[in-house]
Design a protein around this nucleic acid. Sequence first.
DNA 1: GCCGTTTTCGGCCCGACTGTTTTCAGTCG
Length: 576
Amino acid sequence: MNNQQVAEIFDRMGDMLEIKGESIYRVLAYRKAAESIRSFGLAIQQVWENGQLRQIPGVGEAIESKIDELLKTGKLGYYEKLKAEIPESLVEVLRVGDVGPKKALRFWRELGITSVEGLEAAARAGRLRDLPGMGTRSEAKILENIEALKKRQTDRILLGIAWPVARGLLERLREITWVTAAEAVGSLRRWRETVGDVDLLVASHKPRDVMSAFVRFPEIARVLGQGDTKGSVELANGLRVQLWVHPPERLGTALQYATGSQAHNVRLRELAQDQGFSLSEHGFKRADGKEILCSEETKVYDTLGLPWIPPELREDRGEIQEARAGRLPNLVRLEDLVGELHAHTNWSDGRHTLEDMARAALASGLRYLVITDHSRSLGVANGLSIERLREQSKVIDEVQRSVKGIRLLRGAEVEILADGRLDYPDEVLAELDLVCASLHTSLRQPREKVTARLLGAIENPHVDMIGHPTGRLVGSRDAADLDIDPILQAAAERGVALEVNASPDRLDLSDVHARRARDLGCLIAINTDAHRPEHFDLRIYGVGVARRAWLGPDQVVNTWPVDHLLAWLRGRGGGG
DNA sequence: GCCGTTTTCGGCCCGACTGTTTTCAGTCG
């Protein structure tokens, strides 16, 4: 059982306990444990085998023994007991907007509803309106929310889809006369790999006017709520957008609040309490009612005696303790990246010529580019035979003569074959400046086998980098079943760089794995895996992952000047 | 259920918005 699966069970138990009316703190404890397990850098199985479950934040005596039972027997008596009390399908009803634990319980107890389908039928039959606290309006709203739920394919959308939407809306919000600032907040600003909705914050003294202008934007299909400081809408494509409006003199606290994460905010508010304040999106307040306003976010942290914490770190993963101790990491920035180590051309499955890609990389500010087309066995991607690879090498030299200002290097994205061999013999790999080894096929092999393939590639002295190490696609394909920690350790020992693939549907390594890689001292490369010129712009997403992983520029090889990079590669036995 | 340079017990963030209500419960973030 992996971390995600264990976390899922604790989340479900949390939902069931909440429906049952258990203490909210007990419910929150289950959810905190679930989130912690999900974002823990080590495989839960391994942590369990080492008897270190209590090292996971939020896991105490009771939850430890539940995890133990679950991993030992594959079952959990307490979970089974809950399922006997509360229909498990009832938790699905919680996904409908405006339906929380209280209503879910009532629907089940009084109307026998145990599923979203059942809820829909009851609403259509007009059976919800007569329940206490309900009426025709709430009944109609629930029907609308069920429709919206069906239209939404998944609960969370890719960051790479949400950002362009957010940028478009922000641009239009800034055009509104009374708006003095507009920013993306929430998980977007924290660069989480997926977002549940798009959160936006604007500064203005005319909140009502701003709000009514906003809800009239043409792409808005439905207004879910509209108040003075907060409005919530749904776009035609089902994406939900939330807008907060606060006066400029309170923008700092509002920005801090709306950026989250919720767990981070709770920690800050606890700190505020310790210092005799109450902290909210509006400002700091003393018991005597006296307020401290913050127009800047830095002042919020300063008031709490902390340095400003970058949004990407605000997940309650130790950032507050480190900030307190003055040990916040110096995070890598987009402008630190000077090279791209993974790019394709029309020699394999790219769409553009080598020269086009070189010029595009130069135009996007890069100083070096490694051409890494696919190797021979990847037929669907028009992988290069050894002859074509050598031919390409000459073309790289030619293009280098005509394109100045960017250093072109010879590389390849070499298949790690199903039996663990690499797709080119060592003497061919030795001719290249950089070898990126990647898995594209046989990702569903058993754990030992697929782990051994990666370990084997790392052990090969010609391999400099592992491309998209786990093979996952965000939200659509699970990672290969890997024993990730030994892989990270081997890469750290051998000085092989691990890729953070910046393509929004990969983001592989993930933030959690990259954080573990960072802690183990692995070298990291932030690459776009560009197949088209515009893909070089995607590196901002890889930077987001790296920052969430607490990575600084020194550990990221493509922040190094080309001479430094070449020295590293030569030291590894590359051609150079 | 978890957790502690004030605590091993008694705390556990704070507010907006909606709908159904005459003061609030439920939901959401």
